[in-house]
Design a protein around this nucleic acid. Structure first.
Lengths: 210, 210
DNA sequence: GTCTATATTTCGATAGAC
DNA sequence: GTCTATCGAAATATAGAC
């Protein structure tokens, strides 16, 4: 039952500890914000001495940057659900499914991202101006193509994207509020299914895709 | 042109300084978060010595609490736009208009609220459990009545409310991201009008109200 | 690579003269 | 009611033994 006690290589130790620290950092940054988070608390959550954090990450800010980058890449990967779809109902529906699933599985990452953007994106402004801008233009063009082909109503593609981001990420960023309104307990499997279906139905009908 | 130099009464001085401090605090809390904000910075923005803040507000937390309370009351007042409406298109449309207008005029308050909820609502949990819960139940019942009367599609009222909050507040909380995607400049009057119309159109069509 | 001890800075809050 | 000076606590980061 116990792990094989083979001594880990240097690289393995590093990878393992970095992952441990990043996971703890995501949680603490999400719950306390960058300013409210302390290296001591992250160290406690990770179960390591505080000095070890500075051994693996030069500064609090660098550790934070890694956390923000992670959720961003997860979202980018999810966007591929939109590509290669025949119809808007299929493509946007799959994108909503993917984003809602991420909101459930990675609420902390979403919160860290939201906090970062709300504070003016001091750390990831370059991502907004390059990767995100390119991504947005590409998907807006895809949506515009669907509109031109008469497959959906003539909505503003950019505002549709904002609605998709806002609605899906709300279930992560405001999960505490939703939980409170749900009687103090998190949404269960059936409620997440219902939430996802509600969002899909309202948005897809709202853009004339169904 | 200069102000009449009549000496202010004690109460007037207090009211004036409290307002000044609250305005500065809203800005600083929004931009830096609770943990990242410092009394020194709030004092600088307000143009007062730091000690004066502690003269008017016993602690940083109490000052913060006032800021959160303010935006919450503004939103509650806006919700009256929904009441007394004959049709869902009218009521929900007016609510969207009001919420979008608040997002434009009070982005900082919205951000402070979002940050507070994201961190588990340590300061305003009681509001969530009392006022917000009652408010939500009341409006959900109103929406359900519209559904029962056949005036709109049978959507889940709660998820519709989440969509309304998420979408409208996104234009405040993520205004920096939107500005970046808008070429680095804030939305102008026409763009805000277009955004509001887009949101109204997509949501109202999505719930079968138009 | 790990961890204790500590240097250094900065914060919230207050004392006390005016 | 205002403001300078400062206290005590807590933070980031590092030094250095192991």
């Amino acid at each position: 039952m116990t792990e094989s006690p083979r001594p880990l290589r240097r690289n393995e130790i590093r990878a393992q500890n970095e992952a441990l620290i990043l996971q703890a950092a995501e949680k603490v940054f999400a719950e306390a914000g960058f300013g409210g988070a302390t290296m001591q608390l992250i160290a406690d959550v990770a179960g390591l001495p505080k000095a070890n954090l500075h051994y693996y990450f030069a500064s609090k800010e660098q550790l934070y940057r890694q956390v923000v980058q992670t959720i961003f890449e997860i979202w980018l990967a999810a966007a591929e659900a939109m590509d290669g779809a025949e119809t808007p109902a299929e493509g946007i529906g799959a994108y909503i499914e993917a984003k809602m699933d991420i909101s459930r599985r990675h609420p902390n990452g979403s919160k860290v991202w939201a906090s970062e953007v709300m504070h003016g994106a001091p750390v990831i402004q370059d991502y907004l101006e390059t990767t995100l801008r390119d991504w947005t233009r590409g998907r807006a063009a895809l949506i515009q193509r669907w509109i031109d082909e008469g497959r959906m109503a003539p909505v503003d593609p950019e505002h549709l994207l904002y609605m998709l981001w806002a609605t899906t990420q709300h279930y992560a960023d405001f999960n505490h509020q939703i939980e409170t309104l749900n009687g103090g307990v998190p949404l269960d499997d059936a409620q997440w299914r219902a939430a996802t279906d509600s969002v899909k139905q309202m948005i897809l009908r709202g853009i004339g895709a169904i």
